[in-house]
Amino acid sequence: MAESPFKADIERVQKEYSEKMTPGAIVYIPGSSVINKTGSWRVFMPEFNREKCTRCYLCYIYCPEPSIYIDEEGYPVFDYDYCKGCGICANECPVDAIVMVRETK
């Protein structure tokens, strides 16, 4: 799976955030919202079928987060740290390569 592009940011932000609780709640760390892993909100998760995928990229284009990346072979990769499970990718997929399944944790 392609690695989250935010990994280095998360480490940097987590280190700086605790040191910089400023009066007025000013956040001096650009891109600091990456530490909020919104994937924890998810109820349904997208399940991907590589066999059916035609690499049309519609899921990648429509993902509002965006938490779908494209790997080296051109297939979508889902970043479950930030995917809220909205289901738009599954709805847009023209070949039903993505289905939403209830997540059990």
């Binding site: 000013i26 956040v27 001096y28 650009p30």
Partner: peptide, 8 residues
């Protein structure tokens, strides 16, 4: 300076 956000 470095960018920052208010009203967070």
């Amino acid at each position: 300076r470095e960018p920052f956000s208010v009203g967070s």
